[in-house]
Design a protein around this nucleic acid. Structure first.
Lengths: 136, 136
DNA sequence: CACTAGGGTTAGGGTTCT
DNA sequence: TAGAACCCTAACCCTAGT
């Protein structure tokens, strides 16, 4: 099948956040077509963006675990999205990822990453891109 | 408490195999709701089916050579155990299910596909033929 | 017809129990 | 230590509504 499962890379997440910063949540198509961060999301559909944002919003929610919690808690967009558009524009997708492999294998960087738990790579990337992380 | 650990019976395993033969792997919900073998799996969730299939696939995997390793080798029924539809039909005495949808039970779902989604026929064929590597 | 929102399902890593 | 059964949830699908 096409893709066994394409995990989101930190670059893509950053691009999505930048897109939401600029257009606001719900403007998935516009985000995807934006010339700034769009290139980072060529392998993602507008629906993918929507789904990912939903997942991010959920996890950003302070939730212990449905394992021992009730949990009707739910969704709501940004936790602490204080990043400005200027910062978003500062993102240079081409600087962090090869422009060559647009399609067949966009999962490049973290495709074979299996590490668990918090990885500092995310934080580093966020820092490099000038974005802030939604959850501590 | 909620889950005393319910071991899978041979009947359930047979029903699962029959379901995979019919719908292809990955169509857990469809398998579970099938009027023919579904009744055998009423106490199993679609996720349970998925998990069980995974376990079966793993154990069916050859583990002789210690030199071969590296790939996930996703799904595919055991090469040695080729339960055919006939066997599948033989497994369930409950085949006398509700007369409700007795008819279009055979090829219903896969017959009127819009052209999207994976052709499970291929996968079944590969499985039966013992081909490997669902995805390169 | 294209897009979005939201519910539903699957895939795969992780955990628990035996 | 290994394997089976079950949990968690990101990623993906389906469909109604606009």
């Amino acid at each position: 099948m096409g893709a066994p499962k394409q995990k989101w890379t930190p670059e893509e997440e950053a691009a999505l956040r930048a897109g939401v910063e600029k257009y606001g949540p719900g403007k998935w198509r516009a985000i995807q077509k934006d010339s700034k961060f769009g290139p980072c999301l060529t392998s993602r559909s507008n629906v993918d963006l929507k789904d990912k944002w939903r997942n991010m919003s959920v996890s950003a929610n302070g939730l212990g675990s449905s394992r021992e919690r009730g949990k009707p808690l739910a969704l709501m967009p940004p936790p602490g999205m204080l990043t400005l558009m200027d910062d978003a524009l500062a993102i240079d997708p081409l600087a962090t990822m090869a422009p060559a492999d647009v399609k067949g294998d966009g999962a490049d960087i973290s495709s074979d990453r299996k590490s668990l738990g918090p990885r500092y790579d995310d934080m580093v990337l966020e820092a490099v891109l000038g974005l802030k992380e939604p959850y501590g």
